[in-house]
Design a protein around this nucleic acid. Structure first.
Length: 498
RNA sequence: GGCGCUAUGGUGCAACGGUUAGCACGCGGCCCUUUCAAGGCCGAAAUACGGGUUCGAUUCCCGUUAGCGCUACCA
């Protein structure tokens, strides 16, 4: 393959909200595409709507991208700083006759209109055809225009859409598209306040930045013909478009706050790993063509191709995301997850220096022991708290289940003594000590094992006992065992024996 | 309403005219077992509906239905 030129793509969010799942997936596809092709990813902030624009949200969007591991090569470029460019383009189109001045008053909120038109069957109501796709102002004579102008009527600039023929463009996922020009309205290029609309700024910028492939949400498919028209009017061939299907909530409506967490940041907070999130997102609307699911980022980059992008909207499945997270928590070399666990412990206030004091080897060992049972990073600070802190509590259900036997307090006390007397502290020594005690007491080892686990880490759901003991160390184990004695006795008394 | 897009198990994807319709998540069962996970094995579960085209349709065409998108001086 000898590509004539390295592709240039862009991710162009508008700062009207945080980085949501859909935007993240679009960014990811752009990034994977750029990396796969050795191309360039440009980040552009589309902040031309002064009404909705929230400049303070930009940092959050950038932070979300960084968390995701998506790095851009150019930008961020802010459209609000390039207004002159768009105005010049509009003027050029106006001068060439491809656009015209419009003095209509801005349509009231279309949303309100549509809603009010909604009710009523209107059996005998004639079908209301698409009203006014052609703006009457396109026919204004010079004198009429001059009158409006001198009358101080606000003026916008609209594109003069051909009344006949069809417009086509190429979409890498939906195939060649063609739509009748009669269906396209004379859309606004420049608002009466002098600021460009999306349609204008997006085309001017994509041309100016020499974008070769526009990968974006399928919600833009419908107005792509307008942009194709603009490209040609501006003297350029449209680039290749690639519209990716939308991400829906479980109820099959567009993913929104209603469906719970939808900002990328909230997933970071919940304890998801960025690479797991990437793997999950990549497979939402794209298939590598194989059955493999666990694809680490380098493989994702190697395999990503527009040809594998689906045309069907996809439902966001939280359970599957969690499955990916367990994979990324458990499969990679433990060294890779250590930094994430450390960050989580710091966040939870459990990184007090003792872990560092115990040494990196100890920390790696502890994490390796715990991680097979984790699903989220936050598990390390919740149920595995006992591995990193002394102030853990005893899980209620665990107490009820494993501290029932009234002989337990006495046996645990003996166990502590015998463990304390151990000359060697390792898995087999602990194992032997416990089992010989169990034999002497005439109980099954499991009774002591389960009770001890709850006593030294506070949970029933925890790693195998003897490895846990080794990681915790003799002092902590015997100390915790003795400390638990009163609680064990209390559990026996409180146990609602039936 | 108009225009457009889409339609394989609950979910995400495979199968791009011929397969017992495959994989994964989730779900159920079994194994393992020191709790709980992980892991292994097994299982239930799908081509929206109706017409065509074809020797043969999940696959191609048309219609219906449904969902979604666009229909702003928002992006």
């Amino acid at each position: 393959m000898n590509a004539p030129q390295k592709p240039r793509v862009r991710f162009a969010p508008s700062p009207t909200g945080y980085l949501h799942v859909g935007g993240a997936r679009t960014a990811l596809f752009n990034w994977l595409f750029a990396r796969h092709q050795g191309g360039t990813l440009v980040l552009r902030i589309e902040d031309t709507d002064v009404e909705r624009n929230r400049p303070e949200l930009v940092d959050g969007i950038l932070a979300g991208l960084k968390w995701l591991g998506i790095e851009w090569d150019e930008g961020p470029v802010f459209q609000s700083q390039r207004i002159a460019l768009y105005r010049a383009a509009a003027e050029r189109l106006l001068a060439g006759g491809a656009a015209f001045s419009c003095y209509c008053k801005p349509a009231a909120y279309a949303g309100a209109d549509a809603a009010s038109e909604q009710e009523g069957e209107g059996d005998d109501e004639g079908s209301k055809s698409a009203k006014g796709v052609a703006c009457p102002c396109r026919h204004l004579s010079d004198s009429e225009r001059a009158a409006k102008e001198s009358g101080g009527v606000p003026r916008a600039i609209r594109f003069r859409v051909p009344r006949e023929g069809a417009t086509q463009f190429e979409d890498a996922v939906f195939g060649p598209r063609e739509i009748q020009n009669a269906e396209i309205e004379d859309f606004v290029l420049l608002r009466s306040n002098g600021l460009p609309t999306y349609q204008l700024s997006v085309v001017v910028d994509d041309m100016d930045m020499r974008i070769t492939h526009i990968i974006r949400g399928a919600d833009h498919l419908s107005n792509t013909p307008k942009q194709a028209l603009l490209y040609r009017a501006l003297g350029a061939a449209p680039p290749i478009f690639a519209h990716v299907p939308l991400i829906l909530g479980p109820d099959r409506t567009r993913l929104s706050k209603r469906h719970g967490a939808t900002s990328v940041g909230s997933y970071a907070d919940e304890g998801f790993l960025p690479e797991a999130f990437r793997n999950f997102l990549a497979l939402l609307g794209w298939s590598p063509g194989t059955d493999e699911e666990y694809l680490r980022t380098p493989e994702l980059i190697e395999r990503f191709a527009l040809a594998g992008v689906s045309r069907t909207n996809a439902v966001f499945d939280r359970a599957k995301l969690e499955w990916f997270n367990t994979q990324y928590l458990q499969k990679p070399p433990v060294e890779e997850v250590l930094p994430f666990v450390e960050a989580e412990l710091k966040r939870a206030g459990l990184w007090n220096g003792s872990q560092a004091a115990a040494g990196p080897a100890w920390f790696a060992r502890a994490v390796d022991l715990i991680r097979p049972r984790t699903r989220l990073l936050t598990d390390f600070s919740s149920w595995a708290r006992g591995f990193f802190a002394e102030d853990f509590d005893y899980d209620r259900e665990a107490r009820q289940k494993f501290w029932k036997d009234e002989r337990l307090a006495g046996m645990l006390e003996k166990l502590a003594a015998s463990l304390a007397a151990l000359p060697e502290w390792n898995h087999d020594a602990c194992d032997a000590a416990l089992r010989s005690l169990a034999a002497a007491e005439g109980v099954k080892a499991g009774l002591l094992i389960n009770a001890t686990r709850v006593a030294i880490v506070g949970r029933a759901v925890a790693p195998p006992l003897f490895e846990t003991m080794v990681v915790l160390g003799k002092e902590r184990v015997t100390e915790r065992l003795r400390r638990a004695l009163p609680a064990v006795g209390a559990s026996r008394a409180a146990a609602p024996s039936a």
